[in-house]
């Protein structure tokens, strides 16, 4: 689905922001890109989206070389949700905003199809079509932007810190929706995220970056157990992993207990054994 072969990117002959990036992402995966600011995560997703073209190596999405694909062609395949919804939203009503992306991708002539899809999405999300997006809260605007992004049913959804500035509920709503999309429609998701709790809850695989390089690539649970790796990338594992890891020394099995319920069950079981 997404293949990076020794991809490097340098802005106008300056220092490379990413170098020698190689990975392969299959259809239907849910991947998180981890690392501190400046590690090259955003550059990496922009390279996948084709917003930046590799200055070295090759990036292909769905078999198409991003350097050789037209914007409109690419937008059919790849949806991109930015951190700041206000850069995306440009229409005066939620309906027009959702239709905007559809028109750009499907073409203006598809009025009937666009209207049907817009109606469907308005209903699913419970938006009022005539509402002004700028009168909504930040969390709601992010949802409008997300709706508009996934309206043309892109095969790949890229998310650049999608939950920044959102409260817990708004964040859960957006992430749950993305999860459903990933599970039911098989949409490939690649997400840049600073919240390790969210990464643990939603992503299955993680690419860890530092200083423009790919440090590691593996299942989220394994990545979070690799303390030296996390240290190198200036990351802290999610709290539950910290707890499980530190209890691990005392009772076998707890190290695997990365979810809250299994940790509870494990503790209760141990208590029973001792008693």
């Amino acid at each position: 689905m997404i293949t990076a072969e020794h991809v490097g990117y340098a802005y106008r002959g300056n220092v490379r922001t990413v170098s020698d990036l190689s990975f392969h992402i299959e259809k239907g995966e849910f991947v998180a890109l981890l690392g501190e600011n400046g590690a090259g995560k955003t550059t990496a997703v922009k390279l996948i989206a084709g917003l930046l073209r590799p200055t070295e190596g090759r990036m292909t999405v769905n078999g198409l070389d991003t350097a050789k694909t037209r914007v409109s062609e690419r937008a059919k395949q790849v949806g991109f949700l930015f951190q700041n919804p206000d850069r995306q939203i440009c229409e005066n009503t939620v309906r027009d905003e959702i239709a905007f992306g559809l028109r750009a991708v499907w073409g203006k002539k598809e009025t009937e199809r666009i209207r049907e899809r817009t109606d469907e999405l308005l209903e699913v999300f419970g938006f009022r079509g005539d509402e002004d997006p700028f009168s909504l809260s930040r969390g709601q605007r992010q949802q409008v932007a997300l709706t508009s992004t996934l309206a043309p049913r892109p095969a790949v959804l890229l998310l650049d810190e999608p939950t920044t500035g959102l409260d817990y509920r708004e964040c859960t709503r957006i992430m749950e929706f993305i999860r459903r999309l990933n599970e039911t429609e098989g949409t490939t998701v690649v997400m840049v995220c600073h919240d390790m709790e969210i990464v643990l809850d939603y992503a299955r695989r993680a690419l860890v970056m530092a200083g423009g390089h790919l440090l590691d690539d593996g299942p989220v649970k394994e990545i979070f157990r690799d303390a030296p790796l996390l240290e190198k990338a200036s990351l802290l594992p999610p709290q539950i992993v910290q707890i499980a890891g530190r209890l691990g020394g005392e009772f076998a099995g707890a190290d695997d207990a990365q979810t809250l319920s299994s940790l509870i069950a494990e503790t209760a079981k141990k208590k029973g054994e001792r008693a």
Binding site: L51, V71, A75, R87, C90, G101, A104, V105
Partner: peptide, 12 residues
């Protein structure tokens, strides 16, 4: 930034 976001949506 805005142009980039719009480009990502397929605006040429």
């Amino acid at each position: 930034g805005i142009m980039e976001a719009q480009t990502a949506r397929g605006v040429e």
